[in-house]
Design a protein around this nucleic acid. Structure first.
Lengths: 340, 340
DNA sequence: ATACCCGGGACATAAAACGTCCTACAATGG
DNA sequence: CCATTGTAGGACGTTTTATGTCCCGGGTAT
């Protein structure tokens, strides 16, 4: 049932907008009884002429009638409106959630896919598709795009396709080695994305668990420096968000640091930084690349994460306030709303 | 499930066309493997430029990829196409039926609503809605519209609404008294339609079972003559189609005529004429108004009838070859196709 | 009677769609 | 190896559509 709308959305992204527009016109006319064009236009926040176009169309379809005293809904229009109620609720329930989250955390765009990535592999794939679509929407020619690792990011990479708008783009890992397994590393993701889209890539080969001395000499290396500079001048960042403890375990962080994290109330992880409930940074991984302060200069920061278990973590990162776009799933979104 | 598509068809018929267009483009690309714009355009019967617009759009959406050697479908495009299969079939299965019937009987337009009017009152209402929509589509200012009686026609009248394009129209009964009950009479239907649309009407008051002498003097009456002339100069005819025997019974035709009808193989009735399987007229009701030969001059003849039981009758009338537009239901349409 | 709001006509303008042609490039077949 | 064919994509003038902005005659309520 909902599936059918999701499929149609893929083929005609503006379908929902048109549907909602026409529905709300009819809805307003229904509740108003008889109403005039100008009155209706201002109450719907449309220009008169645009409304007129729609109204003429709806009249063609026999969904509303008009005479010199104004417009009113026809019988078939009323019936249609009634039949549409459940569809509208289904279709725009998530839209309302998106708007709420966007407003609560001052984001420019929120995309929610139905389901729960924790329990459904399909939802996870869908999250990847939506993430890829979001990236495609914001990218422009010759952009530098910094990406992180993780299974969600891997899904996004999976769903990217060759595209002329990304042909000149550079994909780079946002940060160096973070101790992830190879196929989930930022380096891997960046190269896959580049291959899929026809773009180019540069990698940051920074071994994990480097001593301080070796680390210092490494970051002096001109090659490394060049990539790091590219990363810090990126226009777009796409990153995953994780639960702090889960990430610490996955990255085999030593027990001392782990207990320190726990003590500081670390909840979330993103871009190698650990955040507490209030969105404060309580720890950062020792590696090179994009620093949190660089984000202010980055034009588009896209966070992608889903699953009920990650809801609280996502809320923490959002509270830190550097995100522009969030791509998540329904289950996580509902959790996020509990923490506003 | 199908409901949602029907609703969308009502609210955004234009989007459904777009959906079909984009689907068939993807479909063609899928089966062609790699194909070029010009080749595809001719095989889809589109101009190159229009196809190009769509293709650019689909590329934006990541549903297809293109390089110098041609276009091919992307993985998400292939997946989408698969997911859409049932939706397209549900949404446009009837469209294919419509085309087949239109072609078989040389009609300019066929409209099929889902369901079976025999068993579902909802389908019957839907048939009325579709009939009203068809009439609205063909009517222009100050037309004379001749209508017949019957329950289906009554449903059409029900679904008409006030409309500026019909304000100057005249509604007239196609033929005089045919022995139907009052609320299903052509006279009644014509007056209801006029009231609903804001149009005007003239009636033909011809009592049933009139003697030959009285009949002759009646049709000499100037008032009657005037209406009859109006009827015969109508631009649009909307009529029902019935099963011959059912109609004979309903009109209380005497037993002699009934058995003669049976002997002649009368199958269908329309406009007071009885037709056999081949579409030949085998009997006509003795009354005034539109004659079958007048139909040739009528610009738009719209036949409206549904229900599995009427399928064969509809096919008979269609075979007579005077129809331009047919509005029917799925069950009848399937029966009709058995008689091509 | 009057003041107001109505739908709908009109028109200039901005924007989108479209038809048409061209160019550089890849593949294919001799 | 080259000619031929088919490809995407750029360019540009034209047509169609969408939109903003008025205005007018006609109902309606006060």
């Amino acid at each position: 049932m909902r599936e059918i709308l999701d499929i149609q959305k893929q083929l005609m992204p503006d379908l929902m907008d048109i549907m909602k527009k026409r529905y709300s016109i009819l809805q307003h006319i229904l509740v108003s009884g008889v109403v005039g064009r100008r009155t209706l236009a201002s109450s719907l926040d449309m220009t008169e002429r645009v409304l007129r176009g729609e109204v003429d169309f709806l009249k063609e379809l026999g969904l509303l009638e008009s005479d010199a005293s104004g417009m009113k809904i026809s019988e078939s229009g009323r019936q249609l409106l009634e039949d549409m109620q459940p569809i509208i609720k289904m279709a725009f329930g998530l839209t309302d959630l998106e708007d709420s989250i966007a407003k609560a955390f001052h984001l420019t765009n929120v995309i929610i896919v139905p389901g729960d990535s924790d329990t459904s592999i399909f939802t996870k794939k869908e999250l990847g598709r939506a993430g890829a679509a979001a990236l495609r929407k914001y990218v422009s020619k010759d952009d530098i795009i910094a990406v992180t690792g993780g299974s969600t990011m891997a899904q996004i990479a999976n769903n990217l396709a060759i595209s002329s708008s990304m042909k000149g783009s550079w994909f780079v890992p946002a940060r160096g080695g973070l101790g992830e397994s190879v196929d989930m590393q930022a380096n891997t993701i960046a190269s896959i994305m580049a291959k899929k889209t026809g773009g180019k890539y540069r990698l940051l080969h920074v071994p994990d668990h480097l001593g301080e001395e070796a680390y210092q000499s490494l970051i002096q290396d001109p090659q490394i420096q060049e990539v790091v500079n590219a990363v810090r001048s990126c226009r777009i960042v796409v990153h995953g968000i994780g639960d702090a403890m889960v990430m610490a375990r996955r990255r085999k962080v030593d027990s001392e640091t782990t207990s320190s994290l726990r003590g500081d109330g670390a909840l979330a992880e993103a871009l190698g930084y650990y955040f507490d409930r209030q969105g404060n940074v309580v720890h950062k991984m020792p590696t090179v690349g994009l620093r949190l302060e660089d984000l202010q200069r980055v034009e588009v920061v896209i966070g992608v994460a889903g699953g009920k278990s990650k809801g609280e973590a996502i809320a923490s990162v959002l509270r830190h306030g550097q995100e522009d776009v969030l791509v998540t799933d329904e289950a996580a979104a509902l959790e996020i709303m509990k923490h506003v």
